[in-house]
């Protein structure tokens, strides 16, 4: 069993574009503080940022749980929101239901979920329409991907 070394929970609010990105910044800062390899920090940063943005864009609110164990970095996002009806479709590169407004802000090109998956060693996405979505991503510390 991996031993949990550090765990933190963050709240993210839907629609809050102003604060978007703060959770991933904080997680990156924690990882830097404990000397995690910059490449792994960057991967964890992409995962958290994209997941956080999806909450901001599509959900009502979410809890992000960051866990550092002696084996991996894991990020788990539980959101309360509309959920995703077709997860396989949402995972496709370029698929997006973002509004024009969001696109003007530079988001919503349909690469978020695929990039999360690409940067994860373990990736899970489960959703219940009308209730919410749970995303799990783990990045191994030994760098094997």
């Amino acid at each position: 069993m991996p031993e949990v070394l550090l765990q933190r929970a963050f709240e993210v609010r839907g629609g809050d574009f102003d604060k978007a990105g703060e959770t991933s910044s904080e997680i990156k800062a924690l990882l830097k503080e404990v000397g995690i390899d910059p490449t792994l920090i960057r991967r964890a940063g992409v995962v958290t940022f994209e997941a956080e943005m999806n909450v901001v864009m599509y959900a009502e609110s979410a809890t992000v749980v960051f866990t550092l164990s002696d084996e991996d970095i894991s990020i788990e996002v539980f959101d309360r929101g509309p959920g995703i009806a077709d997860v396989d479709l949402a995972m496709q590169e370029g698929y997006s239901t973002a509004t024009d407004e969001m696109r003007q802000m530079g988001f919503g090109f349909g690469m978020g979920l695929p990039n999360i998956k690409k940067n994860s060693d373990i990736f899970k996405l489960e959703s219940e329409v009308g209730k919410g979505t749970r995303l799990y991503s783990a990045i191994r510390l030994d760098g094997a991907s």
């Binding site: 978007a20 990105g21 991933s24 910044s25 940022f49 943005m53 988001f107």
Partner: peptide, 9 residues
């Protein structure tokens, strides 16, 4: 800092 927050995509 903004780059890190993804604001300058």
């Amino acid at each position: 800092d903004d780059i890190e927050k993804g604001k300058l995509q």
